[in-house]
């Protein structure tokens, strides 16, 4: 098992599937956000295991860049959640539909 890359890929794919299911099955917007974080992490696992396989350090740098992007995403997403919760008093992602056409008024 140490001699193969496959267990790491299987672990990463299981975690990616869990994150994807969290995005499509949950309505709580915090859990949607954390599922996206989990998907980014599983992609990191694939990058780093391929880097170990080829004995190259470039995928580790890519994984580091992905972590930095996740930090930027965390700042924007959490402030967005705060604004939406302040306005709607709910965490349900179905009610965030202010861009829908039904609220357009023709003058």
């Amino acid at each position: 098992m140490v001699d193969s890359i496959l267990p790491y890929i299987i672990l990463a794919m299981i975690l990616f599937s869990i994150g994807f299911l969290g995005v499509i099955a949950r309505k709580n917007i915090f859990i949607v956000y954390m599922s996206i974080e989990l998907m980014l992490n599983s992609v990191n696992i694939i990058f780093v295991s391929l880097g170990r396989y080829n004995e190259s350090m470039q995928p580790q740098v890519i994984a580091m860049i992905i972590i930095a992007i996740a930090a930027a995403e965390a700042a924007v997403f959490l402030s967005l959640i705060t604004v939406l919760f302040r306005r709607k008093k709910s965490l349900n992602s179905d009610i965030f539909n202010v861009l829908r056409q039904k609220s357009v008024t023709h003058e």
Binding site: L11, I14, I18, L21, G22, A25, N28, F30
Partner: peptide, 17 residues
Amino acid sequence: AIIGGLGMILFAQPIYS
């Protein structure tokens, strides 16, 4: 890791997730 991920999408309260 898998138990933590499953717990994250199954808990109802976001703090436990």
